[in-house]
Simulated assay, not measured.
Amino acid sequence: MGGLIQSSTAKKFAMALSGLFLVLFLAQHFTINLTSVISPEIFNELSHFMGTNFFVQALLQPVLIFGVVFHFIMGFVLEIKNRNARDIGYIKFKGSANSSWMSRNMIWSGLVVLAFLALHFYDFWVPELIHKYVESSPVEPDVSRYYDDLVMKFQSPIRTGLYVIAFIFLMLHLLHGFSSSFQSIGWNNKYSKGLRRFTVAYSIIIPLGFIFIALFHYINNL
């Protein structure tokens, strides 16, 4: 059992599960953010619910943070192991002949996404904690502030540009990682081809949707 846990197959399986969990969160996050383009009131209500609901804050949020940390740590571990295996097992490794650019550079696209998450936490999560536990009274929560906080973040062309670049790298990361997650958990049946099309569509549409939201608010701020 110990050998199984330490094997590359088990690590890939665990990483795939954490990746699929993060993909679900990404869809939920996109859905809420998209309402900021449609209705500020709905966005405020949904954001307030997510920011004050006990189940979300006490259970889902810690699980999400753990999933992010676990996924990236496991990615670094597997990347180091794969690089060592290539150095030892091959006289000359031709990556372009055996794999796509996206699969060979998952570590770099992952690092960009990780840097973006750090910026995102700095922009939204840290101010949220300060507002709830330092500046504001929990008895009278401000339900209408979420939309204004979101729009304010996209006043800067530099910050908006960083978000756009980050979501382009997220797209590249998902284009390989999302479909590979199903392969890692052993998904191989008559639905595999359709699932592959879905993962490609998701990997393109969701990041482009986030880019649209950022540019929409930036242009409206001009």
Results as ranks from 00 to 15, higher is better:
residue 187 W to K: 10
residue 218 Y to N: 12
residue 65 I to Q: 09
residue 105 N to I: 05
residue 82 N to F: 07
residue 196 R to E: 11
residue 28 Q to N: 13
residue 3 G to T: 04
residue 31 T to I: 14
residue 139 V to G: 00
residue 218 Y to T: 04
residue 146 Y to W: 13
residue 202 Y to W: 11
residue 107 I to E: 10
residue 30 F to H: 00
residue 75 G to C: 01
residue 114 L to W: 09
residue 213 I to D: 06
residue 103 S to L: 10
residue 17 L to W: 02
residue 131 H to P: 04
residue 133 Y to T: 08
residue 57 Q to V: 14
residue 52 T to W: 03
residue 131 H to E: 12
residue 24 L to K: 06
residue 176 H to N: 15
residue 109 S to H: 09
residue 101 W to C: 07
residue 133 Y to V: 04
residue 58 A to K: 11
residue 56 V to I: 12
residue 206 I to T: 01
residue 153 K to S: 14
residue 127 P to Q: 02
residue 141 P to M: 11
residue 192 S to Y: 15
residue 152 M to L: 13
residue 13 F to W: 15
residue 6 Q to P: 02
residue 4 L to W: 13
residue 47 S to M: 12
residue 91 I to P: 01
residue 205 I to F: 07
residue 93 F to S: 01
residue 194 G to L: 00
residue 216 F to Y: 15
residue 114 L to H: 03
residue 29 H to Q: 09
residue 99 S to H: 08
residue 15 M to A: 13
residue 5 I to Q: 03
residue 137 S to Y: 08
residue 114 L to I: 13
residue 26 L to F: 15
residue 62 P to D: 09
residue 182 F to T: 07
residue 65 I to C: 10
residue 18 S to L: 08
residue 220 N to A: 10
residue 94 K to N: 14
residue 28 Q to H: 14
residue 15 M to Q: 14
residue 127 P to R: 03
residue 156 S to L: 06
residue 62 P to N: 08
residue 37 V to Y: 04
residue 186 G to S: 05
residue 73 I to W: 06
residue 81 K to Q: 12
residue 158 I to P: 15
residue 140 E to F: 11
residue 208 L to H: 00
residue 46 L to D: 02
residue 192 S to L: 10
residue 32 I to E: 08
residue 119 L to R: 03
residue 167 F to H: 11
residue 182 F to Q: 05
residue 118 A to F: 14
residue 169 F to R: 01
residue 148 D to E: 10
residue 26 L to N: 09
residue 161 G to W: 00
residue 140 E to G: 03
residue 56 V to Q: 11
residue 8 S to M: 13
residue 154 F to I: 04
residue 15 M to V: 01
residue 73 I to M: 04
residue 7 S to C: 01
